[in-house]
Amino acid sequence: MDQVLLQINDLHVAYGELRVLQGVSLQVKAGELVSLLGGNGSGKSTTQKTILGFVRPTSGQILFEGERLDTLSIPEIIRKGITMVPEGRRVFPFMAVRENLLLGAWVRRNERAELKHDLERVLELFPILRTRLNQLAGSMSGGEQQIVAMARALMMRPKLVLMDEPTMGLAPKLVDEVLELIQTVNRNGIAVLLVEQNARTALGFTDRAYVLERGRLVIEGPSKDLLTNERVRSAYLGELSQA
């Protein structure tokens, strides 16, 4: 199971003059749960957007199962097995849950028989959605919308799901529920690259973590080790160092 799924080598991304990523290298192995931490504007979301093809790198490589991703279009990348749960959930508010889920498999829209099967599989994973299929997604609570967004991302049977701050704006109780769902997804053999601002949350339940600061990776390692790392503690866990 230690096979490398996603390999990013020396990734540079710039928006015009603004250099957002300056030499990011990271990897995600099959079935792994990895978090990407950092403050506002550190480049976390940009990293994810570059992986999915929203943003083109100025240099560097993104490899997925050994194949170059950084020249492919978004639909092609999705077909390779990467999907995204965007920041702020971003469900389609005036569409029913069923339509939201089916849109998740948009690039495979012509494989109708399989779509039915995929919908069934996703509903087994998130049974709460089964009775809500005809409800407009916009009329659901924030936590429920998060579930819809996650279910939508699973419709493509991805090998890797990119999640951008899935717990943002949720009540503490719901945060725990969402985290449990992420673990459920992960237990199904799907690797997760989780972007989080809340370092304590992320480090508590991921395998490994990377910390980004101003477009550069500053710390990486097993999440457990980072929880006790002095720099992480003072900068991201809000604990004053003892000095």
Binding site: F54, M84, P86, V91, F92, F94, L103, A105, V107
Partner: peptide, 23 residues
Amino acid sequence: TKLGFLLNALREDADAARSVGVK
């Protein structure tokens, strides 16, 4: 049909639509 559905999705949330591979 497809075009109307796509335009609908794009109007509701263009970024989300792109993130699921809508051109």
